[in-house]
Design a protein around this nucleic acid. Sequence first.
DNA 1: GGTTCTCTGCCGC
DNA 2: GCGGCAGAGAACC
Length: 283
Amino acid sequence: MRKKAEGQSTANNHSARVAAACRLIERAESAPPLGRLAAIAGLSPYHFHRVFKSFTGMTPREYAAAHRAKRMRSALRSGKSVTEAVMSAGYGSGSRFYEKSTEHLGMTPTQFRNGGDQATIRFAIGQCSLGAILVAQSDKGICAILMGDDADELARDLQERFPQATLVGGDRKFERLVAQVVGFVEAPRMGLDLPLDIRGTAFQQRVWKALQKIPAGTTASYAEIAKRIGSTSSTRAVAGACAANAIAVAIPCHRVVRTDGGLSGYRWGVERKRALLESEAAE
DNA sequence: GGTTCTCTGCCGC
DNA sequence: GCGGCAGAGAACC
């Protein structure tokens, strides 16, 4: 009994320290260095870092970055100019923010302010051994690879994923790109040497990054991915992020299976998942 | 391009 | 539970 109470109080202590660090990060003009956060929490930088991550699922640096991006977004939404928003979010200089803006907002600040992504997305639909395949590209790179049984369904899916975008059918030059992607889907081991335009929340991005590290021909469980991104208890959220993935095969969510080896689900049909895994294992 | 800070796996207490 | 080192990596100037 006594032991339990002690364990409880340690946990409470930690959550209070982590919460205090979060508030500090939120209030600070620029991200406080790790050493200062740790000193305030009364822990060594090493240990504090681990405690923080185990509670929040992200490192203090990531937390600060996510919070800045959030401030940036709300400042832009409230109608401030891009420059004002950059400053009020605590980015030291405009130029520094611009370098990373695509990462934070998924688009340039001006595009964001103009009501989301109205950029043009070009797409084309082709056929591969797994059925119909849609490849879409923004000016940043491939933003969607979708698979399905019929072309209309895929086009609707694309429109739903990018409701603000202007979708245009691809020209002949674009067909070559589709052919390249189809070739990649048939033989994923070759790799896809094209830039990707990956859009999602910070958490989704972390999951997708982890997925890209799973080598072809192997699999990982949802729990393993959760562990790799340092968020052991987020197994279900990992599954959610996999399901939200818009870039099939290039972000290999098909390589994530249940802990017992069962295939679990696949956004584009379990049969396609099975086929992909079998062909990768055979290569 | 060098420096400084961050992050993580591993080990010791 | 906590601290610390080593080494890789990212951010910064």
